[in-house]
């Protein structure tokens, strides 16, 4: 190799100063190329309601406040929904650059949730075409039992969600994500109801500028498994990035904020004006300098 490059140097006549040397460095760069992973497929760990393939970087703590007002079509008496609110407060943490965990509490049905999310496959130039992230969450209702007359177990309060998040960053501004999902209820809402609800989510983002993107997200529940009286969750929104904050503003027909609630218990009809205005505020804190690890 050394011989080859020396020869190359010898043969090539210099045009600009150091141009030959630059060519030599280019060849070196090509020689052991590391995979060039797609970064920032989405701006945040959430698309709108649900998760995106993104995970927090190692050592990053994310303090999240999710807030959702009432339905816009409640009219002036409810100040177009602004009188009501459901919230989720959460602490989320990046354990490695591919694994993150979080805990949250939602006011809707007084639920506590915990989740873990792991990036299995990363999209790369000349590598995998998509990023795949596995997501799993557990939710516990902390309010009174729905039916206090029957024998109730703690496990009856619990439900779980499992998702495969598959996304591709097609261009710098356009990314698309698919989210096959299943929500499991330990105790089905009624005796004759199924415990599992299957859904397929689809979502994407389009950057309007370097710091603002438009997002859309839809979860289609498989009709055979869908609970009666529920609708599919739809969200349209914007991500606005300002330094350490990402504001996510959106309009959705879902009232609940965790996966069980918005995938399987949405009841609003978006096109009849059952629309909540909501936002996530995310503030990240760096607990450890990533350069000091290894």
């Amino acid at each position: 190799m050394r011989v080859y490059f020396s020869l190359l140097l010898l043969v090539a006549s210099s045009t600009a100063y150091g141009q030959d040397l630059l060519n030599l460095l280019d060849a070196e760069l090509e020689k052991d190329k590391k995979p060039d992973y797609a970064t920032a497929t989405f701006k945040a760990t959430r698309l709108s309601n649900g998760h995106s393939i993104e995970t927090l970087a190692a050592g990053v703590l994310d303090v999240r406040i999710s807030h959702r007002f009432g339905y816009i079509n409640t009219g002036i008496d409810e100040f177009f929904g602004l009188d009501q609110a459901t919230t989720r407060l959460a602490l989320e943490h990046g354990i490695s650059n591919r694994l993150m965990v979080g805990v949250g509490r939602s006011s809707y049905q007084k639920e506590v949730d915990g989740f873990a999310k792991f990036k299995l496959v990363r999209q790369a130039t000349n590598g995998a075409p998509v990023t795949i992230t596995a997501f799993s969450s557990a939710m516990v209702k902390t309010g009174p039992y729905d039916d206090p007359t029957r024998v109730n177990y703690f496990s009856s309060r619990m439900s779980f969600a499992f998702q495969g998040l598959i996304a591709r960053k097609f261009t710098e501004s356009f990314s698309l994500q698919l989210m096959p999902s299943v929500v499991h209820y330990n105790l089905a809402p009624a005796p004759n109801m199924n415990n599992n609800v299957y859904a397929m989510g689809v979502g994407g983002r389009l950057k309007l500028s370097k710091r603002i993107s438009m997002n859309a997200e839809y979860y289609y529940q498989i009709p055979d498994t869908q609970y009666a009286g529920t609708t599919n969750s739809l969200a349209l929104g914007f991500d606005i990035e300002t330094g350490g904050h990402v504001f996510q503003l959106y309009f959705t027909n879902s009232t609940g904020i965790n996966e069980r609630a918005f995938i399987t218990q949405t009841t609003g009809d978006f096109f009849k004006g059952d629309i909540h205005f909501g936002f996530h505020i995310s503030r990240v804190f760096t607990l450890s300098d990533p350069r000091k690890k290894g």
């Binding site: 060039d36 927090l56 970087a57 990053v60 990240v284 990533p290 350069r291």
Partner: peptide, 9 residues
């Protein structure tokens, strides 16, 4: 992309 920073963001 080889430049690394104190904060991931």
């Amino acid at each position: 992309k080889g430049f690394h920073f104190e904060k991931a963001l």
